[in-house]
Design a protein around this nucleic acid. Structure first.
Lengths: 341, 341
DNA sequence: TTGAAAGCGCTAACAC
DNA sequence: GTGTTAGCGCTTTCAA
């Protein structure tokens, strides 16, 4: 039974004021380092603050003043992709004078429009700016400066960070082709995301360049989400004429595809080769470890944060940052014939 | 140049009220689903809300009402350990009716007392409760219900989630012993944390049980932080009588130790075996992949969140949850002689 | 140098 | 059913 523990109300500015025998206005000045406070008063108030452990309420503080020195990272869910970005952002925030607030809804993805909702709830009050992770709604009109990582398709004025999805997809497809695969299944990403469009385009281009037809029935949608990928993966792998390789648009789908393969009694890579995209840490943990296209996720998070700070400060700079991708060869693909010419 | 973009002020309740021709009080009732609003008014207001894309400001809302339906996870920094917990918490939050807000300071760890400061800033206003990740200050007196993951040493009334650090450390040490190592270096964790104490205790106990002396000069402090671990690791590995194996108290330190070894021209595990603790995803990515003691990090995050919700709801239950640890054998340790009896 | 007072966007009595 | 009013904890003129 622990009811009743932890209920001391937080100490507020009025408490400090009373204790120090001054008004809240004076305490506020001390807290915010404003001029016009006698040294003696300042010391006394500071002492009381220390002793009482006073800390301004973010909610109240930000309601009144425009700057909070808190930056938001808004995500649909804390999964491997967004948390990698978070690590990068966390690395980059040191020395900027900002604190980091990551916000996620409670609805496990199935929640369109979260970016607008979260932004509305936090902007104008709690945060001075926000990084939106894979937003589908790209309103350029929010209360605060915003930077998007891997956003929705279509031109938008939004400052953006992404990686070279197209080149990465071409590389992945060529890799499979070079291993002798030509019957390649494709698990597309989340509809609407620019990255999903580019990865599919890269796949098709590489196939075309190699003179290979894309069997339309081998192209399915996985939406970047494991639960959405298993069905299509199962369909693909259950066919009598199943593909010899599957290119999943992101690692989470690829990992889910490996699970499905195992479930179906198929060995990876002996019976089917699988390649992913992202290189989240989890991709190295699967059996077999996943061959994938690496995005510099930490760096993307860090760049997003730096870009946001620059936008807030009104620095003139390039507001579209594209980072390179790279093939990471692990053990989920195997050669099945002679490489293509 | 992007100055001037994104500056439309957010739409507030007064805007909705004006547009709908009602008072803000009525809008508030609609937003919060209170009784006493005519169906016709309700529809009209709802329509305006929809059209204008109104969303209540978290800051203002929480200033006034006690419940915000937001739970906080307070961390010193977003690194592999805390983000794994975050993933687990994110999984567990679905269906609880809460949203998740993760907060981290901007000061990269070197910031004692962050837990109290963050809590003060957020409690009483923004969040209904908080999960504290490895807090060193264990005041049981905050404005809101609090749950700690892997907290500071010493008994405290705080509801707590941890894993069996002692057994894990014993298992790691025995494993090394069984591989024939007896000159084992130990990189201790962050001073004050219960987990650090227990891991060292487990190490010493296992050594004693095997009848091995612990060379005091082989026990150093790594503080769970890579930058703090490299120095001690270098000292240990530079000695002419260097240990044949190192047990690092957490994966981040173990990974840093591998780097140091490589820097020194030592091969892992040929020249020195290294074992870690935590099993963060990154531990599988090193060269060689790290053998380590696994904590069920996702589950710990999920359990912490569930415990917090129960505490808030006043559910009577066990408020100390301890989860099992497990040895994960990868490739950073090798046998160097006959196993101990 | 200090404090009184207004108000940030919202909720909750209470009056109409 | 609906609006008026009084704050929540803080910052910021502005007067004293």
């Amino acid at each position: 039974m622990i009811r009743g523990v932890n209920l001391a109300p937080r100490v507020k500015m009025a408490d400090v004021a009373r204790e120090a025998g001054v008004s809240v206005a004076t305490v506020s000045k001390v807290v915010n380092g404003r001029y016009g406070v006698a040294q003696e008063t300042l010391d006394r108030v500071q002492g009381v603050i220390e002793r009482l452990g006073y800390e301004a309420s973010l909610g109240a503080q930000s309601l009144r003043s425009r700057r909070t020195h808190v930056l938001g990272i808004l995500v649909a869910e804390f999964e491997p992709f967004s948390t990698e970005l978070l690590k990068g952002a966390s690395e980059a925030i040191a020395g900027t004078g900002y604190e980091l607030l990551a916000y996620s809804g409670g609805s496990r993805g199935a929640d369109v429009g979260w970016e607008r909702r979260h932004l509305s709830r936090l902007s104008g009050t709690l945060i001075d700016g926000a990084v939106l992770v894979t937003p589908t709604v790209v309103d350029t009109n929010h209360g605060v400066p915003v930077v998007a990582v891997d956003p929705h398709t279509g031109p938008s004025g939004l400052p953006t960070i992404d990686s070279d999805n197209y080149a990465g997809a071409v590389a992945a497809t060529r890799y499979l082709l070079d291993l002798g695969h030509s019957r390649i299944g494709f698990l597309a990403g989340r509809g609407g995301l620019e990255s999903a469009r580019l990865r599919e385009a890269g796949f098709r281009q590489a196939m075309a360049d190699a003179g290979r037809e894309v069997d339309p029935s081998l192209v399915r949608v996985g939406s970047y989400v494991p639960s959405a990928a298993t069905g299509p993966a199962r369909d693909l792998l259950s066919r009598p004429d199943r593909p010899t390789a599957i290119f999943a648009s992101n690692d989470l789908s690829a990992l889910a595809t490996i699970d499905v393969a195992h479930e179906l009694g198929l060995r990876v890579p002996e019976d089917v080769s699988i390649i992913g995209f992202d290189n989240v840490p989890e991709s190295a943990l699967s059996t077999p470890p996943l061959t994938t296209i690496s995005q510099p996720l930490h760096r993307m998070g860090a760049e997003a944060l730096r870009l946001l700070v620059d936008v807030i400060d009104g620095v003139e700079r390039d507001v579209h940052v594209r980072l390179p991708t790279e093939l990471v060869e692990r053990a989920s693909c195997r050669r099945i014939g002679a490489p293509v010419a």
